[in-house]
Simulated assay, not measured.
Amino acid sequence: MKTYYLSFVPPSKANKIKLNLRAYSKSGKRYIVPKDVSIKINKAIWELQKQKEEDPVIKIPVEIKIDFILPDRRKRDLDNIMKTLGDCLVYAGILEDDNLIFKQTLEKHIIKGKEGVIIKITAYQEKKITESELSKLENFKRKLDGTGD
């Protein structure tokens, strides 16, 4: 389908500050995103929108391959960064909803002095799970329950 680029690695959604517990949100907790994190997220959305052109919003299941180019070996949690990227793809009008991501592959590349993200989005091709694998799963569950062999 399409490849998108970001000039930097967006911050993780985990970069938020817990507020007073007496102020409630749907989950009963309230958080605030620090200004510097918010600015970077908005920049990522802007960069994606600049590349979107007139492409229609994707409304079908997709597979996403993301290559993170990192300038150093500092610890980064790719799962949390992916949560931010999924939201950015929605806010930029690329994906209708991030629940359309059926498969994702995340990979780190450490290249001194370089930074960015390469996002490849293709239509998802479902791979069937075999009856043998389903049977093994059911056997495993029975063993956990104490009803199996």
Score class of each variant (00 low, 15 high):
22 R>C: 06
114 K>D: 00
38 S>N: 11
116 G>E: 04
148 G>F: 12
129 I>H: 07
118 I>R: 05
136 K>C: 11
15 N>R: 14
42 N>P: 01
119 I>G: 05
144 L>R: 12
38 S>E: 05
110 I>M: 02
92 A>I: 01
93 G>T: 00
34 P>Q: 15
59 K>C: 11
103 K>A: 08
144 L>S: 07
114 K>H: 01
56 P>C: 05
148 G>N: 13
116 G>C: 03
123 A>E: 15
27 S>W: 10
28 G>P: 11
77 D>Q: 06
52 K>T: 03
118 I>S: 07
56 P>M: 02
14 A>G: 10
77 D>Y: 08
31 Y>F: 15
24 Y>H: 13
105 T>H: 09
41 I>Q: 07
95 L>T: 04
134 L>Y: 07
104 Q>F: 09
67 D>F: 03
92 A>H: 07
137 L>V: 13
84 T>I: 08
39 I>W: 02
69 I>Q: 00
117 V>G: 05
107 E>W: 00
46 W>C: 03
73 R>E: 05
52 K>E: 00
17 I>Q: 13
15 N>M: 14
67 D>M: 05
33 V>I: 15
142 R>I: 09
88 C>W: 10
14 A>P: 00
125 Q>A: 01
11 P>D: 14
16 K>R: 15
132 S>E: 15
142 R>M: 13
63 E>S: 13
24 Y>T: 15
106 L>C: 04
35 K>T: 08
51 Q>E: 14
42 N>I: 02
30 R>W: 09
86 G>E: 13
131 E>H: 04
71 P>K: 02
44 A>M: 12
54 E>H: 11
145 D>S: 14
39 I>L: 04
119 I>L: 04
145 D>I: 03
102 F>V: 08
133 E>V: 06
56 P>L: 13
3 T>P: 02
79 D>M: 11
121 I>L: 06
104 Q>T: 09
88 C>G: 10
100 L>M: 07
117 V>H: 00
101 I>V: 15
14 A>M: 12
131 E>Y: 08
24 Y>G: 09
125 Q>L: 00
44 A>R: 11
116 G>V: 00
50 K>C: 03
46 W>L: 01
109 H>C: 01
89 L>E: 07
83 K>W: 08
96 E>D: 07
76 R>E: 09
99 N>P: 01
31 Y>S: 12
146 G>D: 12
91 Y>K: 14
55 D>A: 13
67 D>Y: 01
127 K>E: 00
121 I>M: 09
141 K>F: 09
14 A>T: 11
126 E>G: 02
137 L>W: 09
36 D>A: 11
131 E>R: 06
